[in-house]
Amino acid sequence: MEERNMTHPKDAQQYNTDRIREEYLVENLFVIDEIKTVYSYGDRMIIGGAYPKTSLNLTLIEVLKSEIFLERREMGVINIGGPGIIIADGIEYTMDNKDGLYIGMGTKEITFVSVDAENLSKFYFISTTAHCAYETSKINHSDVDAMELGTQESSNQRILYKYIHPDSIKSCQLLMGMTTLKPGSVWNSIPPHAHSNRSEVYLYFDLPEQEVVFHFMGKPTQTRHILVKNEQAVISPYWSIHSGVGTKNYSFLWAMAGENQLFSDANSIELKDLK
């Protein structure tokens, strides 16, 4: 397990490329037959990747100081690999590519399973603190509420899928979903925004090996970029913008945690005000 501390925006303005990547970029999240976790002190989010050859059990990490992983937490999972199964307290949930699962607080045992040795599952998960329990629920990708956004002229035509959200699967504070850019589009979250009461994490995927995304972060008048490759994640502090442009179209998973679950409270930033 890795730990990532909170950073002050004035300190971040002094970081060089290596320090920015050290603080905000999550690499090597998917290692065959391992569960990797990163504990971010921004809203106490845990970022994880499970890449089982056959099956992997989620075990407790010491920093939680609890009896079970989800004693005071909830979790969202989206499978970005081959077909698999998640077993939560003895109940099996079949997980095809891009299917999602919400796992409620108090769930004691979680197992990640691959069912095709030639096409292993890749389970990406986010866990956030919780103060009440909601029912564990699966959502098929084909059933997820989808929104068409952007225009071809702006190179940002995309589809936003709301997996864990007040309009679909309810949670205590976790929000989680996916955005897929259409062929020919490369920009995400433009114009950019920030939300001072929530941290956010992006996981970029469906990106060919030779392609990259330039993820933009920082205060609007002190922007920086992080060069991101396939299946790498970026931690976005509450004070930072989060947007990006790729050398090809791609997808990303987004997850948020904070004081509320409203999208409308984001602070929109006009392009003319960026520096």
Rank of each mutant, 00 (worst) to 15 (best):
V245Y: 09
V26S: 00
F69I: 11
I68M: 08
V31D: 06
K98F: 12
E200V: 08
I126Q: 09
S155H: 15
S199Q: 07
L58G: 00
L175Y: 02
Y161K: 03
R44A: 12
W239C: 15
G150E: 07
G104C: 11
V201F: 07
Y102A: 14
T179I: 14
I68D: 07
K219L: 14
I169F: 00
G100D: 11
T54K: 10
L262F: 05
V77K: 05
Y93A: 06
T223H: 08
Y39M: 03
Y161A: 00
M6H: 10
Y204L: 02
M147C: 00
G244P: 14
M1C: 02
Y202V: 03
K138H: 14
F112D: 05
T151H: 08
N188I: 07
E67I: 03
P192Q: 10
H193C: 07
L274W: 13
E74N: 07
S264M: 13
N267V: 15
Y41E: 13
N28G: 14
P183W: 09
L149W: 12
N57D: 10
V113W: 00
N97I: 12
P166A: 01
V213N: 05
N57F: 06
L60D: 06
E22L: 02
G106P: 12
E62T: 10
G104W: 04
I91N: 14
I87G: 03
N16W: 04
K182E: 11
G177W: 03
I103E: 13
L58E: 10
V186C: 10
I269Q: 08
